[in-house]
Nucleic acid binder design. Structure first.
Lengths: 216, 216
DNA sequence: TTCATTTCTTAACTAAAGTCAATGATCAGC
DNA sequence: GCTGATCATTGACTTTAGTTAAGAAATGAA
């Protein structure tokens, strides 16, 4: 983390990264939304960049979730604590976002946890503030609405895919669609994400690598 | 279907029901949205009421889904055809709605079927027309955006619930949350909705009704 | 590098779901 | 009400996942 010109402290490296991310966000808003410069400023100012260390728990069951989070870099895991056992239900990685709209707008506590699998840069906006900005800037609401529509379609697809596949098929899909997770995440967390115990995922992997006649 | 005053034909009964539903929709728009009378008219005119007979297939895999449908009365089943087998993934009933936004806006074909389990009254709006109305009436967009946010939260909840429960738990949940489905829908369709074969659902029911010591 | 901890794999056994086949129950159309 | 077709249940057997326990491999901190 040192240049040969001038040593930089970790925190100053982080600061300049954050400044860069903020500038990028402002640019994107300005490029994609037909809004006055003041509007762009107001929306960009509502965005906060946060760096969270691996292991940080950013939300606990029972809390109200006010944040809409976009992952710039890193990995956040969602899990449910059921009879003392962690059941992983999501892995969010680069360019994915998550929010609990009904929790924020209706003040309902969530029933899940969010924890950083790696050091993670997040772009965060408070949902209530977001909804206020909708009133002021209809173009911002339109863009967010389109984003939410996409997320809805994605979740619909994930739900039906999960319902119509076996754990082994889900593992094969994961190998194709998100192979990075295999190295980023411990296997016992992947197991519960696929709906089985760690021992079963071991056996599934063994089955697959022994029967290499099936090549998919 | 006859009064003792004057016999009415089935189709005229249906016509007056449809007129009533239309009036109700117009009222709701007018009551909940701060929009001019002309705006209310334009939005209400974009809504079409349809009566579909039980068994009607309203969408097939491979088609683009243009409609946003609200169920006034009846039941629509979503299923996937996988290796010749129907896998049910949703039952939509009264006051639930469904749409495939990315299919309509990006012209992507869907991979599922929609079929009426019962005679069903639907309130239908074309999604592209809906999106045009968003431009004209921001209050309409706001209301729809809030509805989509709720749907997103619901789907998130459904997905995590499905991922963290066993078929038996799902059946027990169904008994509590949607007991009407038990009588409205054949059991082999419920089975695949719960993620098992019909024979397994039979055994699950047997297990539950034999072990009445557990009372939930 | 070493050691302790965590994670992953394997094995033996149990429980649950899939498969195939036969039998009962239910329902729609006549 | 009868009848054929569809749907639900049961049984025997196979496959897959859960459970418990042990040991191997990988990881991280001193």
């Amino acid at each position: 983390m040192e240049t040969h010109i001038k040593p930089k402290s970790d925190s100053s490296v982080v600061e300049s990264l954050i400044a860069g991310y903020k500038a990028e966000i402002r640019q994107n808003i300005s490029k994609h939304l037909p809004i006055s410069k003041e509007g762009v400023d107001e929306i960009a100012d509502a965005v906060q960049i946060r760096l969270l260390k691996a292991g940080t728990i950013l939300l606990r069951a029972g809390q109200v979730a006010f944040d809409c989070c976009w992952i710039i870099k890193g990995c956040v895991r969602q899990y449910h604590l059921i009879e003392g056992e962690e059941k992983t239900t999501f892995f969010f990685t680069e360019d994915q976002w998550f929010a609990s709209y009904t929790s924020a707008t209706k003040k309902v506590p969530v029933n899940h946890y969010l924890s950083c699998v790696e050091d993670t840069f997040l772009s965060v906006m408070n949902i209530n503030q977001e909804q206020e900005l909708y009133q002021k800037y209809p173009a911002f609401e339109s863009a967010c609405r389109a984003g939410i529509e996409n997320q809805l379609s994605d979740y619909h697809e994930m739900l039906t895919t999960y319902m119509t596949t076996t754990p082994e098929e889900r593992y094969r899909n994961l190998l194709k669609t998100r192979p990075d997770l295999l190295s980023r995440v411990p296997q016992y967390q992947l197991a519960s994400y696929l709906g089985v115990k760690p021992e079963s995922l071991s056996r599934i992997r063994k089955r697959i690598y022994e029967n290499l006649q099936r090549r998919d």
